[in-house]
């Protein structure tokens, strides 16, 4: 065994992904009685050096806490975590693929794309209801699981809106916008995030999926990516409702 935590132990199978601050491994999980629980994914924080380690440990801990508190079919579940060590990690479901890869493979029908987008809407709606902003929505962060269930992942940039209000009165230097530039709204690039900045990203995901060709869907794309946040959809539900109407028109 390569590690244990509480009543579980695991074997590392292979590394399946790596980013600037963390890496993901495929693991095989067992309980203490030796019964096999299955394959899972373990995300760990990289060794970043003394200056950055503490800062990113806090961010990693926030990522795990927020993701674990979101229990929803369309959000990747967190099962186990160890946040008290130098390179903290957490264990989550192992995905079959991500939406980015699925789209590049050109294997998705229009119905499958519409279904995937609806699942993303559901996941983001749930996050917004809980007072969270994802801030880095993109096809790469939407994972596919068995039964073609798509789930939102990577809570590394998730923000709790209530916490922002608490610290509002502290004068501080502006943060640069964080996220993936292509999917970032104009105000997000200036460090301002809101439901509307997530909605902007959803509009661009829709465009990236190649389902905004029809006039009805194109209108949704345009409204969700308006320059001024106030001119966009006020909620994901409103956008989803327009999308459902547009799709029923297209598919009828």
């Amino acid at each position: 065994m390569d590690g244990f935590h509480g009543n579980y132990e695991f074997k590392i199978v292979k590394e399946i992904g790596s980013g600037t601050f963390g890496f993901v491994e495929k693991i095989e999980l067992f309980n203490v009685a030796g019964n096999r629980c299955g394959f899972y994914a373990r995300k760990s924080l990289k060794e970043l050096g003394p200056e950055l380690q503490d800062q990113f440990k806090r961010r990693f801990s926030r990522e795990v806490t927020y993701q674990a508190s979101c229990v929803h079919t369309n959000i990747v579940n967190v099962y186990l975590c160890n946040l008290k060590i130098e390179n903290p990690w957490f264990i989550m479901d192992l995905a079959e693929a991500d939406l980015h890869k699925d789209l590049l493979s050109n294997s998705m029908s229009l119905e499958q794309k519409a279904s995937a987008l609806n699942m993303i809407f559901e996941g983001v709606k749930y996050m917004h209801r809980r007072g969270y902003l994802h801030r880095d929505l993109k096809p790469f962060n939407v994972l596919r699981f068995s039964g073609d269930i798509y789930k939102i992942s990577d809570f590394g940039l998730v923000k709790n809106l209530d916490k922002e209000r608490e610290s509002e009165l502290i004068t501080k230097m502006m943060d640069d916008g964080m996220g993936t530039p292509y999917f970032m709204s104009p105000e997000a690039k200036m460090g301002i995030y809101s439901h509307q900045s997530d909605i902007y990203a959803l509009g661009l995901i829709m465009e990236f999926m190649g389902i905004s060709d029809s006039q009805a869907v194109n209108k949704i794309f345009q409204k969700s990516t308006m320059y001024r946040p106030a001119d966009r959809y006020s909620s994901v539900s409103e956008m989803q409702s327009d999308f459902a109407n547009a799709m029923s028109e297209i598919l009828s």
Partner: peptide, 19 residues
Amino acid sequence: EGLYKPSELKTLGGKNHLY
């Protein structure tokens, strides 16, 4: 930048953030 109107900024965080 024309992204917000003054009335819209009243409820937006970041009032004290300097660039």
